[in-house]
Amino acid sequence: MIELYEQLKQRYALGEISVQRFDLVFITVPRENLASLLLYLRDTEGFTHLVLLTAVDWIEDNKFQLTYLINNRESATDLGLRVIIDRDEASMESIHDLWPTAATYQRELKEMFGIDFPGSPRIDEDFILEGWTEIPPYRRDFDTLEYSRDTYLERPGRSTSDPAQHMKQLFYPEDKD
């Protein structure tokens, strides 16, 4: 895998590499190189299987990380390509022309993270949520508790307590501190 990285480095501008296992490597890739790199890896290096496409929200850096995981079935190795995009203008090139099934992943990312993939088939159609008006729910700043408090009725007679306080009360009721 390291040889492949060195070989790719001569053709493309690549970022850092992290070797997770002997058969799993993650490489950071500039967004403009991604499509051509995927095409090269698919057609020349045998990474023909798109395992998954997903996003990670690094809200403290104001970035999204897109992870394209591809698998080479002959050599039984996996390559994860990380693309860091801006969180405010979350948009990325679509790869549905390389793998038609990527359109489903992209539709989900649009709905759940608000990352746009212009040109991807049916990208604006609802995937899971219907009539969703809040911020995309898988973003870290979406507060599930607040949403459920605002949206659903509280069951009467229900109370919430801090687990640490509750256990303290249970075991040391005489301890007032």
Partner: peptide, 20 residues
């Protein structure tokens, strides 16, 4: 900090978890 992907062959095909 780290990330990984673990897979197995379930009755329907490849099942995997990507954990960060």
């Amino acid at each position: 900090p780290g990330e990984t992907y673990v897979r197995g062959e379930c009755s329907r095909g490849e099942y995997g978890y990507y954990l960060v």
